[in-house]
């Protein structure tokens, strides 16, 4: 195997793990933001603590999506399939990263709203659910396309 082949295959393997890595980074940032908001809100409320802290865990789902995509892509692949896998892994990873970060901000906003008006919790959390929807789109199409890339290369 020459250097060029090595780099191409390394990029392919990076593409396999990128969804998990970037999804996890996004979840860390998102959960941290929402978690910090939840712990701040605890100072200002007398009840409903569980709901506030529970909301802060929403951005963790991106890591799960990343793991599933990585597991789907984690198989022997040819040199031809490596660039495609890298591109898919990177792009879906970025989608998961940003969706988790911004979902964390949505959750933090929902937490600050809910502490004053608990009755609007369902509506306040809706923006976070919408962001989640886009992460799901990226996740599903990554699964579909990654299977196609491996097959086409073969």
């Amino acid at each position: 195997m020459n250097a060029e082949q090595f780099v191409i295959l390394a990029l392919g393997w990076a593409g396999v793990f990128l969804p998990t890595a970037l999804g996890a980074i996004g979840s860390v940032i998102g959960c941290a933001r929402a978690g910090m908001a939840a712990s701040g809100a605890l100072l200002d409320v007398d009840s409903g603590y569980g709901r506030l802290v529970g909301t802060s865990a929403l951005p963790s789902s991106q890591t799960i999506y990343g793991i599933v995509v990585t597991m789907q892509m984690n198989q022997q692949f040819s040199e031809k399939a490596a660039p495609g896998l890298f591109a898919i892994g990177l792009l879906v990873g970025l989608a998961l990263l940003f969706s988790a970060m911004l979902q964390g901000a949505c959750c933090a906003s929902a937490i600050t709203t809910t502490k004053s008006k608990p009755e609007v919790f369902g509506l306040a959390i809706a923006p976070a659910a919408i962001v989640e929807g886009f992460a799901v789109f990226a996740f599903i199409f990554a699964l579909i396309i990654s299977g196609g890339v491996a097959g086409a290369a073969a």
Partner: peptide
């Protein structure tokens, strides 16, 4: 400063 924590700890004006 942990802005998320501080902002969330302040009651709405």
């Amino acid at each position: 400063t942990n802005y998320y924590q501080l902002v969330a700890s302040l009651p709405h004006l």
